[in-house]
Design a protein around this nucleic acid. Sequence first.
RNA 1: GAUCUCGUAGCUCAGCUGGUAGAGCAAUACACUUUUAAUGUAUGGGCCCUGGGUUCGAAUCCCAGCGGGAUCACCA
Length: 569
Amino acid sequence: MNLNLSPEEIVRREALAKLRALGIDPFPAEEFITTSNAEEIKANYEEGKQVIVAGRLMNQRIQGKAGFADLFDSTGRIQLYVNQDALCPGEDKSLYQDVVRHLLHYGDFVGVEGTLFTTKLGEISIHVSGLKVLAKSLKPLPMVKTDADGKVHDAFTDPELRYRMRYVDLVVNPKVKDTFVKRTKIVNAMRNFFNDKGYLEVDTPVLQAIPGGASARPFITHHNSLDIPMYLRIANELYLKRLIVGGFDGVYEFSRNFRNEGMDRTHNPEFTVMEIYVAYKDYNWMMNFTEQMLEHVAMEALGKTEVQFGEKTLSFKAPFARVTMTDAIKEYTGFDITGKSEDELRAKCLELGLDAGENLGKGKLIDTLFGEMCEKHYIQPTFITDYPVEMSPLCKRHRENPELTERFELMVNGKELANAYSELNDPIDQRERFEEQASLMERGDDEAMFIDYDFLRSLEYGMPPTSGMGIGVDRLVMMMTNNESIQEVLFFPQMRPEKKQEGPDVASFEAKGIEAHWIDAIVSMGFLSLDKLKETKPTALHQNLNQYRKKNKLDVPAAQLEEIMMWFS
RNA sequence: GAUCUCGUAGCUCAGCUGGUAGAGCAAUACACUUUUAAUGUAUGGGCCCUGGGUUCGAAUCCCAGCGGGAUCACCA
């Protein structure tokens, strides 16, 4: 007897045994061939048509010698009507009386054969003439019900349980499934958009010796035979640019990146960024490309360009607004950053009550001004352009102003969604910028970058003018599916590992020759192993065991002290 | 890491200023051959997160811990 089973689980395990006793395999091996599914039945309804479908049994409504149930397959819900005479035309009514009425439970997988009809209440249903158990469910799913007004009762809402047991969440909450279907549609729409333009999808290393292309704390691991530290990538940017050096006109990758930093509702340790690099283009071209791409994605995945996000409606209809960073800061602070020194910028930040420590360089100060004072105002998709050079070590200097770079970020709903450059392809400038980063790092800027010398070498062989763009796939999916947290758009978001509940060490008791009924008693008293048991007094245990025997009316002889003394030896 | 907040039946949740637990659904049994949150009758089911403390008495109050959520910090 397993003490950890709930009464309902015990019932289901007993049903399992009874099915076997009736000669029914609750987990048959052979293929079950279906001819239809819930969606198709409703789309091409034809009275009297013979169908075979399979799915999970939900919400049985048995009434005597007939009953209704809902069958859920991957396409949706179809109602079953089962009556005894149709299911069991012969003398033997056990398939109906035993199996359908008592041995099938909410959540079981069944295959069903029958004819289509419409009930009195107008619902398309299958009149079942054959039924096969395909898999028994041993744990009860949460019972979520929706009433006539569409109101959901007893919803399965606990975020912890939903994320830890996403399989249950998906079964019971249709909206969750919908989010993930949309996620795949969004990704496919992007991929198709790029492929149609002739760009090449590529794979680059996840395991890297230098975690380059961004500044973030990496996950560190170790390669045994090389005996060197390796890092899970924080970005793939430098590898894609190497491929542009190698002669590809356009490359892109959906890159799973890893950052060893805090987790909250917009950050998960692993997340997905789509990066694309196109030769002979600049950031102006990339802005047009990005807005067209997003409009295309919205149309493909959602069928429209207007997206409801909470109270707001976001419009992904191209073109998007474009504002320079200088103008943005001027607009929301009245302060013109043009030509200002580091001290002047710091003074302005302090005046506005912003954190502006001595370790912040000019670029970082401007970033602070923008991040704190402006960013939140850009709800509709807006390109913010021309970032200060210190903030963008991989970006080409602005063609008209060497203090700025040809960079844009796409802000949506007050948050960064995409980031793009006219890529820096001057190897000498790039080397100097990396060296500045190194000195920033020494000053204590923990966001400065490592230097990748092989990347510099590749630039020395010549990289054509190139524009690159990265877009946060998880955040895009959040926006397009109206979800406020990243956990809702990742199947298996990172969670603290579940604490293992220490089960009883039954083997240690059995090894001592303790009888099964006493083991149950000992475990129920909270002694999970023989060692724990030995911490108590044999006489006290003797009393407790016999009390337990009396209370539970055990049909066994009373425990003898001598016997118990043996367990302690 | 800081602050706030939550942890009661398989699920969703009640349980007031302290008196050792309740509902609906699910389960079990019976009735019911077109129901749809099916219905009716009956039954079973709880280390009230863990450990301390206050108290005659703690699910309830206090402290600590564990786990979750929110906000902030961190995170281009």
